[in-house]
Simulated scan of single mutants.
Amino acid sequence: MTYEPVYTRAPRNAFVPSPVFVGIVAVFAVSGFMTWSRFGNVKIDVFLFVISGWIISLCLHEYAHAVTGYFSGDLSVADRGYLRLNPLKYTHPLLSIVLPVIVVILGGIGLPGGAVWVDHRYIRSRLKDSLISAAGPLTNVVLALIVAVPFLAGLAPELSPSVVTAEHLEFWAALALLAFLQVTASLLNFLPIPGLDGGSIISPWFSPAYQRAWNLVAPWGFLLLFLLLWQTQLGSYFFEVVNWLAELIGVPYWLYQLGFELMRFWEAG
């Protein structure tokens, strides 16, 4: 006879950030200072700043899923180490971290990653089920607004495409790129596609038959996303919305494009 594990409380260090996450934050802070001061090869500085910042946001995205699941009834997420912001603890580190980082490097878009695993047997409400899925992209929305604060508050200097010698231009371009990545991640994760957070937000409200059909399609969600964005007109509409939202929070298109060009330090020009 087998018994279901009973989780009554979280391990003592369940909410303590892991050394891995602390190390990533340290790289982000140091590379940010290096980018600001144009230390050494500023393109490498920008690369480290953007990639480490993006990984931090991925960790916070997954943490939001896990902590919402924890307070919704699944205490087992603490036992799996999901509450320590350690990307190595994710169910699929390749999908959660490596693939989104590669896509940023190659295409400059905030591709959603794989999620932490929440045991939905402990979740007794469809609303809580939806909130667990919504917590991740909502975190990206909050991060986009936080990164955009210097632009909205006028802390960034007057920047324009014609002023390429502005003070700390590389830093502001890198920060604009981070804001752009959060905007794209927010929109992509809210798309109602099987396998993505947007699809998981609405699926608890389906009938059991539709849920089974939805779950069968879910493993192909990433492929469907690529087809929609790069093989149909919907991709053009998507990036128009992204650019409009970025402008709305004070981040101009040309600036985050400059950030992307700077990040690709291996390219000439």
Rank of each mutant, 00 (worst) to 15 (best):
A156D: 02
A209K: 12
L229Y: 14
V46P: 00
Y63H: 09
Y253N: 12
L85E: 06
L155V: 06
I249C: 03
Y253W: 03
I249L: 06
F239V: 08
W117R: 15
L262G: 07
F171K: 09
W117L: 15
I105Q: 02
P93K: 03
H168N: 15
P11R: 02
R9L: 08
F226A: 10
L224S: 01
I97N: 02
P252K: 00
F260Y: 15
F238N: 07
G81L: 12
S203K: 15
E167F: 01
F190K: 10
L188K: 03
Y70V: 04
P208R: 14
L255D: 00
A14L: 04
L228V: 14
L187E: 09
S162E: 15
F265G: 04
R38L: 06
V147F: 15
L99D: 01
W214Q: 11
R9T: 07
G235D: 13
G108Y: 09
I249V: 08
N13F: 11
G136I: 13
D74K: 05
V22M: 15
L228Q: 11
L175Y: 00
D74G: 07
G107N: 07
F15R: 11
S76Q: 13
N41M: 01
P93T: 07
L245M: 03
A144I: 05
G73S: 03
L175G: 00
A10C: 02
Y70G: 06
A213S: 14
S160R: 08
A78M: 08
M34K: 01
L258T: 10
T35Q: 13
F238G: 08
T8D: 13
S162H: 11
I193C: 12
T232Q: 09
A135Y: 07
F47S: 03
